[in-house]
Design a protein around this nucleic acid. Structure first.
Lengths: 201, 201, 201, 201
DNA sequence: CACTAAGCGAGACGGTACGTCCCGTCTTTCC
DNA sequence: GGAAAGACGGGACGTACCGTCTCGCTTAGTG
């Protein structure tokens, strides 16, 4: 959690920093990033768009990246990554396509902004890791371990290495722009990772 | 090339914007980024550190990211990626280790800064792609195509996909901080990519 | 009266805005002005010093100057200016000395602050005039008229002009800082005003 | 001088902080004070009205009062106070009337603002004393000493006391608002000060 | 070999965003 | 039901950099 905690003195659950304001601010931040980009995003602009005083922003978040972080997480939070039915391996491919599709759209804009800002801000990097990356890695690792147990994947595989093999290229292409994040690209990554690149004859 | 061209009015090749100043500026920029980080880097600070007027900076580069870009490229420019002798596949692993080692050091700091800034600046992104990423991809693709021809790699492989499988995880871990960029990690990526993760019995 | 009236909804005379709180607030305001000056005085600081909510201040006074006004008047309110015994003219001199002495101390600090603030705030200026200046002028005018009747002062004098001749220089020196508000200064003013400055041979 | 000095390193007389900007700023400040009052005057507003960056203001003046101080002095600087011809004593009366007239107009607004601000700012108070009050006192004292030498004024008079007797009431009435700054008032002060208020029979 | 035009350091300028402080209002909680 | 506590929208503050500009000074290449 990157939004500032400002612990109430007791278990003062009754007035926990009105979530109505949070919603207004996060919506405003998302809207502005998507329309004008993160580079020109301004605390003043967020406050104005949200109809909120600037002090309210500083009271709740340390900087604009933290706001965008929260806005991003609020968009994508609750979804199951790997549907439990269907062919095991194809489910992975479909999940990768789903992610690539999201990255082609608004989510891609937001996560590029966050990845960029995180390179300059260790706190933001930690938040991105804890709130976005690691939860997804955990779910994927679990799915992969299950696949190893059931014989779909090599029993000697390292789940973390598999995750990196499959997903790092998607982030890479998102940031480097070496080509489109198409289904064909996702399939190429997936297929090569399955078969390996060594020639066994 | 991201540094501004500012075409001299004639073919004034004899005095092409004193390279002594360039050197001072790039050294100053590198020093400041490595000591204080890219976030607090300032045109004023670079100018002061280099003992140079601010106008001189703006005459030659459009912004601080372009300076850091040049400083970075000047550091790492001239090196062969894949030594031509030795075991074919092991050469790939060694190259990956070399890159990971560089990323663990000062080069990692610089490229993280550049990758971050490039998410906000399309010009910088293009420069990074053209001056850093693509040349290396081209050399790697050539090496991989040679390996396919000689039977070390699957003949039906896509060199671009192979590049992404092998190198994207290194960038990913550099940025995400999901773990150390150790030789063990590089080896895990390399080995999994060679064998593939599908269980063939 | 500059403190807000805020008519209680009925003739709630019995509990007229607890004077205990008033006392705490006025004492806090006086203390803060005397220690840190009027310029840095803050509603928050007064409230904190008095152990009182900020709303309580705004419910009772329109601004900090009004509080200081009340604090000042509460200090100096009830005193007879011209003791009725003693030599008529010397009583005037003594009164002037008494006032100068007060102005050399804490009262001088407060009235300088109020005079300054009153230049920017017509309401405060009116309050200062009505609660401080005019009552004293009335008493002085009465004393001077009595002196004219009894032959101590020129029968054709204008009491208001006499007041200004004698007291304006004290305010002037308080504000301008052209010299100390000493007894010697008071005596010089008094003596010159008595004799006039024209040379009659 | 309250405007910041920022001495150029050598006798760099050629570029001494462009007086064109000074003029624009002082004109803007005077206009704003006279139209909206000193209380609502803002650095931003001055900068906008003058078409100048805010940093330029802070580079040259420590605060808005210093700007108004300069603007005021620039208006009234060069004038002889006591014309050398005419009846000696009547010249004093005329000078007082002239001053009162100025105080009834825009100069009165400005000097009230400055007097008010000077109560909170010792630097401004010193500047007002050195640049406005003392020069005028010096000229008046000289005139009065000449009058004493020539027998128009009591030879045993204290010029400083005379100045205070005559001019303090004008400042007093300007600030206290106890009545209009009319010629009649000036005459009353002058006449009483000449004759003295003691009854000589 | 002097002259002149350029490139340079220095730093002021008009501007924008920052993060802080205080205002005066409001809402919540406690007594 | 009034008071403390303090969050809120608003706005000015003074600072930090931005990118542009104008100064003299240095210096290199030409006449």
């Amino acid at each position: 959690m990157l939004s500032q905690q400002k612990q109430p003195k007791a278990l003062n659950i009754g007035r926990p920093r009105s979530p109505k304001i949070d919603r207004k601010v996060l919506a405003a931040a998302a809207k502005l990033v998507l329309s004008d980009g993160f580079g020109t995003l301004t605390m003043d602009a967020i406050a104005a768009e949200a109809g909120v005083g600037r002090m309210t922003l500083y009271r709740r978040w340390p900087n604009k990246a933290a706001i965008v972080m929260d806005a991003f997480v609020a968009r994508v939070d609750p979804n199951t990554l790997f549907p439990s039915d269907g062919d095991y391996l194809e489910t992975i491919r479909l999940q990768m396509r789903t992610m690539a599709k999201a990255f082609r759209g608004e989510d891609g804009v937001l996560i590029r902004a966050l990845l960029g800002a995180a390179q300059l801000d260790p706190d933001l990097a930690a938040a991105l890791r804890n709130r976005w990356t690691m939860p997804r890695r955990k779910m994927a690792a679990e799915y992969f371990r299950e696949g190893m147990r059931q014989g779909y994947l090599r029993p000697d595989a390292d789940p973390d290495a598999l995750i990196d093999l499959l997903y790092a290229p998607i982030y890479y292409r998102l940031q480097m722009g070496t080509g489109p994040l198409s289904n064909a690209y996702v399939d190429a990554i997936f297929d090569h990772a399955m078969k390996g690149f060594r020639n066994d004859h």
